[in-house]
Simulated assay, not measured.
Amino acid sequence: MRAVVLRRHGPAEILSLESVPDPTTGSEQVLVAVEAIGLNFAEVLSRKGLYGWSPDLPYVLGMEAVGVIEEIGDRVEGREIGERVLVASQFGSYAEKIAVAASSALPALDSYTPEENAAFGVNYMTAWVSLLEMARMRHTDRVLVSAAAGGVGTAAVQIASSFGCEVVALASSDAKLQLARNLGATDAVCYGNIGFPDQLLDTVGSRGIDVALETVGGHVFKACADCLAPFGRIVVAGYAELDYKLWNPISLWRAWRGMPRMSMESMYKGSKGLLSTHLGYLVPYPEIVRPVWDRLTTFVEEHKIRPIVGHVFQLADVAEAHQLMESRGSMGKIVMRV
């Protein structure tokens, strides 16, 4: 089969297709013929050697895909050849085939295209887990979403607004802010502007923010934390500004300085909470993941929510897809067809 194997860390240009053996199917696994792949910023960090959850080199990049089951392990029950599934894995999805634990192959949504299914799993689960399972979002909450035009951000804006919440969106350009408004945000602030923290405080006013979903870090995280109301909860689900070189102590200091954090004193004095989530560490707990997945898919179907697919590439164009994601110029989810 063809796959994108990461053999060394570096820029997007190091990525290309090569021929590798088909994966073998374990007794508790299913083999999936991949149709479309969803890109995640974590894969950019992995390529650069900055992602702690990455396996040792070499490995096939990619954490999610949609495809059709073509082989079933002898200890797997309740799955069928030809069943369309979404797969989640630590690595391996940038390929024509992937073998995963049967419990990590979740039913695809029949009403979605392959591209929409590829854009759904990681982003919408991250948004749902952050807002509903972690922050316990209520209909009366005012919700702040950073990087609101990205994959997780668009999902969070759609979910929170459909839940009945007032949504304040943060993004880096006017076009991205307009997309967030189109998806249900009531207010929008550009964090690329000079004076952004004061503009955000003016926008939210004395009421503040009840729930914030933050994926950027640095000055964006600080601004979000500063506008939390009493009983406010901020959930960190990423650190997109993370970038450093081991040989450059200044870059290491900047990465450390920009890391999302709150002091215990600020939390207890303000009755505020800092939470964090990473879906990868939930994969070994299907008894927890599957009920959450069922609640999420029921909700999006009831509210007719569809993922925002911003850009579609062919798998052979993986380097170009990574360049676009790293440029921060994309909106919605970047997807690759196989």
Rank of each mutant, 00 (worst) to 15 (best):
M1G: 11
R2M: 11
A3T: 04
R8F: 08
S19R: 11
V20Y: 07
P23R: 09
G26I: 06
Q29K: 08
V30N: 05
L31E: 08
A33F: 01
E35L: 10
E43H: 10
E43G: 10
G52F: 14
D56C: 05
V60G: 04
L61Y: 07
M63N: 11
M63F: 10
E64W: 10
G67D: 04
E70D: 13
E70A: 03
E70Y: 03
I72L: 06
G73I: 13
D74S: 14
V76D: 02
G78P: 02
G78A: 09
I81G: 00
G82A: 01
V87T: 09
V87D: 02
S89F: 00
Q90R: 12
G92Q: 04
G92I: 08
E96N: 12
A99S: 15
S103F: 00
A105I: 02
P107H: 02
A108R: 07
P114N: 08
E116Y: 11
A118K: 01
A119E: 01
Y124T: 11
M125K: 00
W128N: 06
V129I: 15
L131R: 05
L131P: 02
E133L: 02
M137E: 06
H139F: 13
R142M: 08
L144Y: 03
S146V: 02
A155D: 02
A156H: 00
A156T: 09
A156K: 07
Q158H: 10
Q158K: 10
A160D: 08
C165R: 03
E166M: 08
E166N: 01
V167W: 06
V167A: 05
L177A: 07
Q178K: 14
L183D: 07
L183T: 08
T186E: 12
G192V: 06
I194E: 14
L201Y: 11
T203G: 04
T203K: 12
V204L: 00
S206F: 08
S206M: 13
I209D: 07
D210A: 14
D210Q: 12
H219Q: 13
C224W: 05
C227K: 00
P230F: 06
L242R: 06
D243W: 11
Y244G: 05
K245F: 12
K245W: 09
L246G: 07
L246R: 12
P249F: 06
I250T: 14
S251T: 15
W253N: 01
A255I: 07
A255E: 10
R257V: 14
M259K: 12
E265S: 13
K269D: 10
K272E: 13
K272L: 15
L274S: 05
L275Y: 15
H278S: 13
H278P: 00
L279Q: 01
Y281S: 13
L282F: 15
P284E: 07
I288W: 10
I288C: 04
I288H: 08
R290V: 08
R290K: 13
P291I: 14
W293N: 06
D294E: 15
R295T: 04
R295Y: 03
E302H: 14
H303L: 01
I305C: 03
I305D: 00
I305N: 07
I308P: 01
I308W: 03
F313R: 07
F313G: 09
F313V: 03
A316V: 11
D317S: 13
V318S: 10
E320Y: 02
H322E: 05
L324M: 14
L324G: 09
L324F: 08
S327G: 10
M331Y: 04
I334W: 09
I334E: 02
